[in-house]
């Protein structure tokens, strides 16, 4: 369970990096299209970057954050639940900020800044479990801990 927890937290952090990459792809795609004479309006379908950003941000990362929350109850590492809860909270805030930004684009700046908070929280969660694996006094010294880590 701890390695699952660590992997999920790591994937969320990587997800944030991908989100930065996809939104850059989206915007350069728009500018390149406009350069070629395209018109962007309400009927315009998402380009590759926008589609990926929407799928990662609205499905993949929230699902990972939910799974992290569920897994955290079984890691028996102090603070794991707390950190998973924090990750889930900032992911929810991130999605809400995204939708609020359609009406108030200035909030998009917070959406960008909060992305780094998501990555930081996921990184901290990952490290939390990692450090507890290396610290036997915190681990609940069970043989299953090793088995869990190998699962």
């Amino acid at each position: 369970m701890r390695s699952t927890y660590r992997a999920l937290a790591g994937l969320i952090a990587i997800g944030v990096v991908l989100q930065a990459a996809t939104i850059a792809l989206a915007w350069f795609g728009v500018m390149n299209d406009v350069d070629g004479g395209a018109v962007y309006d309400e009927g315009t379908e998402y380009n590759a970057g926008q589609s990926l950003h929407a799928i990662l941000g609205m499905i993949v990362i929230p699902v990972l954050a939910l799974l992290l929350m569920i897994v955290s109850f079984f890691t028996k590492v102090p603070g794991a639940v707390k950190w998973a809860g924090l990750v889930l909270l900032v992911v929810v805030v991130q999605v809400l900020l995204a939708f609020a930004s359609f009406g108030a684009p200035i909030l998009g700046t917070l959406h960008g800044a909060n992305a780094l908070v998501v990555m930081g929280a996921a990184g901290m969660a990952s490290r939390r479990v990692q450090s507890s694996v290396g610290a036997p006094e915190q681990a609940t010294a069970q043989p299953t801990a090793g088995a869990g880590a190998g699962a």
Binding site: D33, G37, A38, V39, Y40, D41, G43, T44
Partner: peptide, 9 residues
């Protein structure tokens, strides 16, 4: 009639 066809206004 104004219509946008695949990015063409």
């Amino acid at each position: 009639a104004v219509h946008t066809y695949s990015g063409q206004r």
